[in-house]
């Protein structure tokens, strides 16, 4: 199904880098990019890279997926309010559906969005998830650095290397 090839390639900056646009005339930020500023109608929009930090504005867990997403259901989609202001619609990942709430802090990650059929392109793009680490403040908690004791006792009947 080569239909996804050109589109996926065309959208790579948006999907991989969360690239939107900023209006050179009024400073308004948009995601995704568009040809004309919705606030001042200036046509001078410059690429703008969003930080990927934000919080959940609203969300829904999808139990009846569309074709192509059957293998992923149930999954949670959200509208994320980016730290810079715009809302973006995306899937959440690495989170249990019943622990999502409005206002939950999230960060952008790159994941596989879908497969274009059994032998088609793998399409990657942004999703959001609870941050693994709070925004960098130079502090790493002792709990995180504390090491878990490895299992020196363990033995298996057959151990295989590679």
């Amino acid at each position: 199904m080569p239909m996804e090839l050109a589109r996926n390639w065309r959208l790579r900056r948006q999907r991989l880098s969360l690239e939107g646009a900023q209006c050179a005339a009024c400073g308004h930020l948009v995601f995704p990019t568009r040809p004309v500023c919705p606030k001042c109608r200036s046509r001078q929009l410059q690429p703008y890279r969003f930080s990927g930090r934000g919080e959940v504005y609203s969300f829904s867990t999808v139990y009846e997926p569309p074709a192509g997403f059957e293998g992923y259901a149930p999954y949670t989609v959200a509208q994320v309010r980016l730290a810079e202001g715009p809302l973006v619609t995306a899937q959440l990942t690495d989170v249990d559906a019943d622990s999502v709430y409005i206002g939950m802090k999230v960060e952008m990650v790159t994941r596989k969005l879908f497969e274009d059929g059994e032998n088609g392109l793998l399409v990657y793009g942004y999703k959001f998830r609870p941050p693994v680490m709070a925004p960098t403040n130079g502090h790493v908690s002792a709990d995180v650095l504390a090491h878990t004791e490895p299992q020196h006792e363990a033995q298996a009947p057959v151990l295989v290397a590679n």
């Binding site: 293998g71 992923y72 899937q91 990942t93 690495d94 990650v109 790159t110 994941r111 596989k112 969005l113 793998l122 990657y124 999703k127 299992q151 006792e153 363990a154 033995q155 298996a156 009947p157 151990l159």
Partner: peptide, 21 residues
């Protein structure tokens, strides 16, 4: 598992994860 197991547990990738992600 007779005689012990080689590790305690292992990490498993999610449905949207692979070597690229």
């Amino acid at each position: 598992g007779e005689g012990g197991l080689p590790i305690e547990e292992k990490a498993v990738s999610g449905l949207d994860e692979d070597v690229i992600s």
